[in-house]
Design a protein around this nucleic acid. Structure first.
Lengths: 200, 200
DNA sequence: ACCTGAACACCGTTCAAGT
DNA sequence: ACCTGAACACCGTTCAAGT
């Protein structure tokens, strides 16, 4: 057996990525493994290692796609010409709604741990940082007397806060009450933080 | 071989717990496994299952200990008769310092996932909730015109926020600069949130 | 009754061997 | 050159067998 050449390397890579993403969406990332992917795309386990170095590599590529989708949604909101304060609330809501609707993909970004003691590669870290960068530019508009450093710190503090609420509130349950409660908390945190920030 | 009776079941349980905790502290929870524990306490792998149902059971007991230590530290701070606003800032600092100094134990509380789709048991959930309960009573003092429900929601929003900053800031690095930056963000979030909360 | 450790069912990853 | 799948080194968990 061996040698089929039915698909190019790029095609196989896309098939692996697609199959893996579907497994994560449907069963959560704990259910993801090479043998399941191989069965799904009808190739041998070894073939997956022709197109991805290992599981870390594969997962980071899925996460990169997820981060790109999230970034695109945030960018759209950031570009609507609302009042800046309203825009920030909208950005937080968008983040939360993304976390809810794509929960299994979203949580893999933060739960998956690289094997060994590897650092995240630069191209990946940039994508993570770009999330709060989206918020920084809007935050700047409500901070006329602040330095850039202060604005970056404040944005990261607030956005980590929003993220913390999402992580802790959503990880046990995703039922309607919990979602409503989470929305309340996110908006409360954002509004009070901004109110404190501009009155100081 | 078999049958030694050198140790009571309670003694073996304590030995397993102690050995497992040490491994987590020194090598992180990804390095924890039954064979390593067994070697450390000089018993067979199977013996661990005499005193703990499985890994989930063992990890939850370690986490319970960690949560108790954290709770005790927070309680001590909550009982100092400072200005309430100052106390909340101190509580947040205490939380952050605990996360830093016991990072591997602290992160296991939030990173470890139960196998299957199990819910956290009630006795465990109570311990988790008790963290923000510690803050609630102090928060009540600065919220004279608010209902209990609003105070609970606000406390959880703020505390999830503090937690979010800790999680995102500490998981890549624990060097001096990162720690200082994290402290700045935690205090910024708490102060601005409280300022917004009381001026509204 | 207490404890062992081989055995089982899973993982991720590799690589000699087939076409 | 492309692809296979047996093999390896790990996991957690079980349970027949020893004292």
């Amino acid at each position: 057996m061996a040698r089929r050449s039915e698909h190019s390397k790029e095609e196989i890579k896309a098939m692996v990525l697609q199959a893996a993403e579907t497994i994560v969406i449907e069963e959560g990332f704990a259910a993801l493994n090479v043998r399941k992917i191989a069965m799904e795309i009808d190739y041998a386990v070894g073939s997956i290692y022709m197109v991805f170095a290992n599981m870390d590599d594969l997962v980071m590529h899925i996460n990169a796609q997820t981060l790109d989708k999230l970034s695109a949604q945030l960018e759209q909101v950031a570009n609507t010409k609302l009042e800046p304060k309203q825009t920030i609330v909208q950005l937080a809501s968008t983040y939360l709604n993304f976390a809810i609707s794509k929960y299994n993909l979203w949580s893999m970004i933060f739960e998956y741990r690289l094997s060994g003691n590897q650092q995240l590669p630069d191209w990946y870290q940039v994508k993570i940082d770009s999330i709060s960068t989206q918020v920084e530019k809007v935050f700047k508009e409500i901070s006329p007397h602040k330095t850039d450093t202060d604005i970056i710190t404040a944005t990261r503090a607030l956005w980590s806060g929003v993220h913390g609420i999402c992580i802790l509130s959503l990880d046990d349950n995703l039922d309607t009450d919990a979602i409503e409660d989470t929305q309340t908390k996110v908006i409360l945190l954002v509004k009070n933080f901004i109110l404190g920030w501009i009155t100081k």
